[in-house]
Design a protein around this nucleic acid. Sequence first.
DNA 1: ACGCCCGCCTGTAAGC
DNA 2: TGCTTACAGGCGGGCG
Length: 277
Amino acid sequence: MPELPEVETIRHDLEREVAGKRIKTVTITGSRSVRRHADVAALTTRLEGAKIDAVRRKGKYLLISAGDDWLVVHLGMSGQLRKCAPKEPVAPHTHVTMAFTQGGQLRYVDPRTFGEIFVVAKDELDSKVSEIADLGFDPIEDVISWNTFGGMLMARKAKLKSLLMDQKFIAGLGNIYSDEILWAAGLRYDRSSDSLTTQEVRRLYRALVETLHEAIKQRGSTLSDAQYVDLYGKPGGFQAEHKVYAREGQACPRCRATIVRHKWSGRSTWLCEACQV
DNA sequence: ACGCCCGCCTGTAAGC
DNA sequence: TGCTTACAGGCGGGCG
């Protein structure tokens, strides 16, 4: 669920709330979230005493600068970062708690433990964390020309949705935003990437950038399961703007045909078969 | 290179 | 009411 707009919202909140603070103690209560570390005590030792300088984002990864290390967080499906007062009750599935010398806590909560949290030396990020080193361009951070984007599409021969969701091609999109972007571009998920006209390439690139900017402005999408909330526990607002995602049976806002759901690649895909071609 | 399925997890909801 | 099953989806891995 957390895709680029949700992760960017949390990044922005973290920048405001924890940048400049010093980590006093780290408490690990769930080992699966820190599975990358064979020695969990080493992780705690490295972080304690470190000052958080800045908070970056690459695709769906949060990179929290802590001296010479990156504290890397990937929220997976159900991960949350929450700013809490020490006396607040501890939510179920809280796996990591960081307390700051200035007071306050940052808690990592993740019921399904698809997400993870780990530390890596800054100069070893590229060599040790290939899933970050191999990420494709970030559609918010890395502005490219639609012409370049078209060249990238033509160089591949894959279904559009496969490419949009391929983190090595574009970093940050998941099921929700892929469907919304394809609707905004008026393109089907199963169009071959090398079949697009110049206008279609331009429409897709524009839909990509504009949909994400609008979603960030609305602080991301919170679905009925409320698995995504921001640093303060508040839901996003972009779900109200979804045009096709989980809107099976409703009218297409553009052409009034009925939105349908296709099962594709073991996953649900929503589209308007009338105006997505 | 690409398509497609599985396993990892838990919570929720639908179906019998 | 109570059990079973499906589904949600990020991502790596494996297979055809």
